[in-house]
Design a protein around this nucleic acid. Sequence first.
DNA 1: TCTGCAACTGAAACGTGTTTCTATTATGCC
DNA 2: GGCATAATAGAAACACGTTTCAGTTGCAGA
Lengths: 203, 203
Amino acid sequence: MTTVSSLTYEDLGSAAQRDRRRRILDATVTLASRGGFDAVQMRAVADQADVALGTLYRYFPSKIHLLVSALAQQFEETEATLGRRTIPGDDPADRVTYVLTRATRGLQREPHLTEALTRAFMFADSTVSGEIRVVGRRLTSMLTRALQGDQYVEDTEPTDREIAVARVISDVWLASLVAWVTGRITAEQVTERLETAVELILR
Amino acid sequence: MTTVSSLTYEDLGSAAQRDRRRRILDATVTLASRGGFDAVQMRAVADQADVALGTLYRYFPSKIHLLVSALAQQFEETEATLGRRTIPGDDPADRVTYVLTRATRGLQREPHLTEALTRAFMFADSTVSGEIRVVGRRLTSMLTRALQGDQYVEDTEPTDREIAVARVISDVWLASLVAWVTGRITAEQVTERLETAVELILR
DNA sequence: TCTGCAACTGAAACGTGTTTCTATTATGCC
DNA sequence: GGCATAATAGAAACACGTTTCAGTTGCAGA
């Protein structure tokens, strides 16, 4: 149950170190986009990021830590790009569906990357719980924001019900993504399942 | 996307072969109960089952196939024991909650085994889709049966809505199990989350 | 019973995640 | 600038999943 944590951007003192961290995460995303989970090989990441293998492990204590950190970073980037925009839709169900559809379309464009990040997220053990929590929080907050709609700009705390709804929907989303990246369902079916779930919970 | 399948009980001609398969799955469950996913090492399984490593791989083409097959077997055993009994509860929500609570309590008694099987299930890639489907079907049928209640004895086909509800609930269940086995939430929280989800969907 | 084929054994070897260790380089402090 | 310390490089070694293969055993059909 012991947690081992990756070095975060804030942990790193010098610009050179922050640059190393960035290079490592960039290499990870590049390799993952190209060949998925299996293509993210620690030696290959180290090579491409131009750091020694030992250094890579100093920054990220395992392949799973590395990939989950890459996932967190991808989330950050997404939020930075379209995070402040108002979510279209007149009621919570519409807004949630909008966010989910849009996100799913984005993931669909990078199937290998999605496979790598999703599988790492699901396979993470207790030593990765810190990083996992970060991603989980981002996910639910993205959904509670969609549930609240414009009220969000006032930074309203989500209600218990909103949190519960967000959790269920993110559970369905993750399960559907796993099913998609393992070829059990198509991308369209992912969207269908999400819409059905939203229907069941919010209508 | 190519599927590679494990040898099923039906595939095996001789009694000696069926016995080998049983010994392998027994060894898997024993090791998993003792030390979880990491303790299920292919050499150790082969040793304990008294077969050569190559034979183990002939029966189950990977560790994940092996563990997911063990999961399918556990399901079968559970269904055989209490499969025909009527599920108590006056409405679908009560019956589903009953089944979930009971199952969760069972899993709680074998945390290492649950960790091993759950993680294998979530980590499975496209080559395991056959075995995964078997387990997925069992899961949803367990839940649709609870939704239908006594009607089930008439072998009524579940409605689309029932199937959709069952899917959402099994998604929540799996996500909660993963969170539990990785130490992010307690077993009580698993039950809480399931009850909340049932509440949201069925009330 | 004999024969041929499929299954099994035992062991070696390979791939990749992870650990470890020594030499070298960068960094902060006097 | 010189020094102590931490960070990094580079490479070897280990662990475990997986593959391979030569020899042996078990078994169905002639």
